[in-house]
């Protein structure tokens, strides 16, 4: 799949933002007043910034409101609803903390639930696609949620919890890679089933339908970077989990915590780039590209 920067930024930053909102809604850290304002500002910049970034890959962003209509069938539509509900509820909850010195526990809880649901619905947009066997796995929502919880705990300053959650995220990520490497072969979809000619003999793409490129090849048959995927996987795990855990374990200071956050975000961006770049869409089979 073509790794569009807008979607990589969107999933990484909205994941971290909604992860932080989840912890703030549960009262971790139990901040009030301007300290709370600072935490909520960071969470909203990440979550809303991520959502805005996702609209950059739309052909017609001016029609984006129509995307709220099909929540019965579409995970993308459900994601829109969850995000708006989470942001509105958390805004009211945050106002209570910042301006009134009140903790409206129920609102915080509802906001947390919808923050988690936002990350889950985002992950389901990818998980639902049978056409991309690497994503079509329960490990995909597990990965998105574990990243959101780990990044959220890190930003919320929950040191010990963040260290545990970062380790869990790393384990889930490695499992998703290992499982994903055999996913296309295990899916049962091949050039034989794509063309229906497998019962005659072995099928080879002889001539493509066009001499130039097209939307399908640009969007679905992305192959650049696969040869470096193993190195990038190691880099992303080290930056995303190993280095932040080491920095947090060393001794707590705001400088080290900031470094841990930067390292985690950089690792998450590399991992998310791989998530798209390594994903094999079955339409590539028609072009003999798999």
């Amino acid at each position: 799949m073509h790794p569009a920067p807008s979607v990589i930024f969107f999933t990484v930053f909205s994941g971290i933002g909604f992860g932080l909102l989840t912890f703030l809604g549960l009262g971790y850290p139990g901040v009030m007043g301007w300290t709370a304002f600072a935490f909520f500002a960071i969470a909203y910049v990440c979550a809303v910034g991520g959502l805005m970034s996702s609209t950059f890959h739309l052909g017609h962003p001016e029609r984006a409101l129509k995307a709220f209509t099909q929540w019965r069938s579409s995970w993308l539509s459900r994601e829109g609803w969850c995000a708006v509900i989470a942001l509105l509820v958390m805004a009211v909850y945050g106002m209570g903390l910042v301006f009134f010195g009140e903790r409206w526990t129920i609102l915080g809880l509802i906001g947390s639930v919808f923050s988690v649901l936002t990350v889950f619905t985002t992950s389901m947009i990818y998980t639902q696609l049978k056409t991309i066997p690497r994503w079509n796995s329960t490990a995909t929502p597990a990965m998105f949620l574990s990243y959101a919880f780990a990044g959220g705990a890190l930003l919320a300053g929950q040191i010990t919890l963040a260290m545990a959650l970062l380790a869990i995220a790393a384990v889930v990520q490695v499992f998703l890679w290992a499982q994903g490497d055999g996913a296309l072969a295990g899916s049962g979809t091949s050039m034989a089933t794509a063309t229906g000619l497998g019962n005659i003999g072995s099928v080879r793409a002889f001539e493509p339908p066009h001499t130039g490129t097209n939307y399908l090849l640009k969007e679905f048959a992305y192959v650049v970077g696969r040869k470096h995927s193993q190195k990038l996987r190691i880099i992303s795990i080290v930056l995303m989990a190993v280095l932040p855990i080491a920095l947090l374990a060393a001794s707590f200071s705001h400088m080290l915590a900031l470094l841990a956050v930067i390292s985690h975000v950089a690792g998450a961006l590399v991992s998310r780039w791989l998530f798209f770049a390594e994903a094999e869409h079955v339409v590539g089979l028609y072009y003999g590209k798999r």
Binding site: G201, S202, V203, A205, F206
Partner: peptide
Amino acid sequence: RVHSYEVQPT
């Protein structure tokens, strides 16, 4: 679009 495939029987 029209693809072309070569199929090699055993």
